[in-house]
């Protein structure tokens, strides 16, 4: 029982309409999992559209994938996996009473997220340089298939939407990091960190599917 963060942070008291802290934790977790269901459904629909168009224009999609640099994708996958690990460790350290090293783990997660976005920025500028813009802005000559723009529409919509979610996740982690450093969390109350953690893992989960589909199979 680390007494010092009790002195610094206020002791969390569960809301009036719950019967106990456990009751609040349980309904909060359900709320978080329901929100994760909506994320899966949103990305699932765009994956379904991707799969349909992949089967309609298989050779064009293969040509599209050949333009992507799988090494960048591979590094990004490893970066996100490590960040998922540090996020899980942050929660684990809070749960097991070692609240002090939760903050460093969260900072490393943030840095990994930033690294991911930097690599994505490099990829995007490289493509813009070649003229591989989405849809009607597509100015790349020498494409064997006339509608190659369609592949890059999918690429930019899916990885762009995922990128926005990474930024949202980083915002949430910063908010949780500030509260952790203020000592608001301990082994009895860490629900916000777990919630943000689950959101971060969902982002990693989606990238686990995005990487092979966009970069490898095409």
């Amino acid at each position: 029982m680390s007494t010092d963060n009790k002195a610094m942070g206020r002791k969390h008291h569960f809301a009036h309409h719950f019967r106990s802290a456990e009751h609040e934790y349980e309904s909060a977790k359900q709320g978080i999992w329901l929100f994760m269901a909506t994320e899966i459904l949103m990305f699932g629909a765009i994956f379904a559209a991707y799969a349909i168009f992949h089967s309609l224009y298989p050779s064009m999609f293969a040509e599209g994938a050949s333009h992507l640099d799988w090494r960048m994708g591979f590094i990004n996958t490893c970066v996100l996996l490590v960040s998922s690990w540090t996020m899980a460790m942050a929660i684990q350290s809070l749960q097991s009473g070692k609240g002090k090293n939760a903050a460093p783990y969260l900072i490393v997660t943030l840095l990994c997220g930033a690294g991911f976005m930097v690599i994505k920025y490099l990829e995007y500028t490289h493509k813009f340089h070649l003229g591989l813009y989405p849809g009607k802005w597509f100015t790349y000559e020498g494409a064997q298939h006339s509608n190659l723009a369609l592949y890059f529409s999918f690429y930019f919509v899916m990885s762009g939407l995922h990128g926005i979610h990474v930024l949202l996740g980083m915002g949430l982690i910063t908010w949780v990091l500030i509260r952790t450093m203020r000592g608001e969390f301990d082994e009895h109350y860490y629900t916000p960190v777990e919630g943000v953690g689950i959101f971060w893992h969902i982002i990693d989960l989606i990238w686990i599917y995005l990487f092979p589909i966009l970069y490898l199979i095409g």
Partner: peptide
Amino acid sequence: FMHLKYDTTINKMIFGTAFFFV
């Protein structure tokens, strides 16, 4: 990482139905 293995059955069901409808 998401502790789903040790979570209540309701949370597993919620998350499972999402994949079913996709």
